[in-house]
């Protein structure tokens, strides 16, 4: 096989992997939008906060130490212990659940029946608050995140595929971290689908998503459902934060990964979990192949960001609700 063809296949495989990473971020948006009609602007910051909290607990950082030191003149930073990763993850999940409860009590409860734009604006405020709160709690420095997932090109795949090409082909490059991310995403999506289809709470979630008023009338507590949904979105944010944070450290820019989720949502639809996955894969493959075939050779490169949005817009022309979004029919 020619080297160019093999390189194209390699780009395609890496596009699929990148797509999974985008999907992980998009999932959080979908969950909240589906259950409450809120476009949660704070989803990216939630990923950052979750990752900051995980590293902070793992490495024994004292929360708000900068603030304590400034106020009391002390010099405390660490507890002096490290918490095992699994326990740190459990504690972080607990904190994200607590966060969901606080969001419901302080924000959502007061905005029931408000216009979607009001709720959207509230999440913008929440995002800015959480940005500052996270930095205040754990510090703004870049933190290394290590949850035991190996990184780097997978040697086994490289060696077992090297025979496909000549001397200038080293075998397919696939990042081990991306492979783990794919497995985790599959488990996560399968769990979410099973949860929403086969559990009582899942059915309640779907009922609320279909019609708030009807769900209320049969005794489903909207407030409880919102806490559950925000907790799940917090957990998904933690998974996304861990995967992206492991790639480039836990730092403020982690919150910007939300930008990569927007074209995925536009393409896959805001209300479909499978849509978030398929949308992510199409965006990932589309942008990587475009960069490889056209962007880098003819346009000077760096086409991925705008091409993702352009691809999503093309899909919107034919399916305004996204590939898997619900078609809204309003009678006059």
């Amino acid at each position: 096989m020619s080297a160019d063809f093999l390189f194209g296949v390699e780009v395609l495989l890496n596009g699929l992997m990148a797509g999974v990473m985008y999907s992980l971020v998009a999932l959080g948006f979908v969950l909240i939008f589906k259950a409450s009609g809120i476009f949660n602007y704070a989803q990216g910051v939630m990923a950052l906060f979750a990752a900051q909290t995980l590293v902070g607990i793992q490495t024994g950082l004292i929360p708000f130490s900068h603030l304590i030191n400034a106020m009391l003149g002390t010099k405390i930073h660490h507890f002096g212990w490290n918490v095992p990763t699994f326990i740190a993850i459990l504690i972080t999940i607990g904190i994200m659940v607590l966060f969901a409860i606080i969001v419901e009590k302080l924000i959502l409860k007061h905005l029931v029946n408000q216009e979607p734009i009001i709720l959207f604006m509230a999440t913008i405020g929440l995002a800015y608050f959480l940005e500052g709160f996270g930095d205040l709690m754990w510090g703004a420095e870049i933190k290394k995140l290590d949850v035991g997932i190996p990184q780097g090109g997978n040697l086994w795949i490289e060696e077992s595929t090297a025979f496909l090409g000549g001397d200038d082909f080293y075998g397919f490059y696939l990042d081990t971290l991306d492979i783990y991310a794919t497995v985790i995403a599959v488990i996560l999506v399968a769990s979410l689908i099973l949860f929403s289809q086969y559990t009582k709470t899942g059915r309640a979630l779907r009922a609320v998503a279909d019609d708030h008023q009807a769900a209320l009338s049969v005794g489903i507590s909207l407030r409880t459902i919102w806490v559950i949904v925000w907790s799940i979105a917090g957990f998904v944010a933690l998974v996304a934060g861990v995967m992206w944070g492991a790639k480039s450290g836990v730092q403020f820019s982690l919150s910007l990964i939300a930008l990569k989720a927007l074209p995925v949502l536009m393409l896959g639809g805001f209300t479909s979990i499978p849509g978030a996955i398929i949308g992510g894969l199409i965006i990932g493959v589309g942008e990587k192949l475009f960069e490889f075939l056209i962007g880098a050779p003819f346009l000077g490169g760096a086409t991925e960001n705008w091409f993702a949005y352009m691809l999503a817009l093309v899909f919107l022309i034919f399916r305004p609700q996204g590939l898997f979004g619900e078609k809204i029919i309003e009678r006059v």
């Binding site: 390189f7 992997m17 960069e291 880098a296 000077g300 760096a302």
Partner: peptide, 21 residues
């Protein structure tokens, strides 16, 4: 060879695959 990376630069797979090639 020029390899631009868009802001913020968290996703650089294409550039580094090109370097590997």
């Amino acid at each position: 060879t020029l390899l631009p990376v868009d802001h913020p630069g968290q996703e650089q797979k294409s550039q580094w695959l090109q370097i590997r090639r």
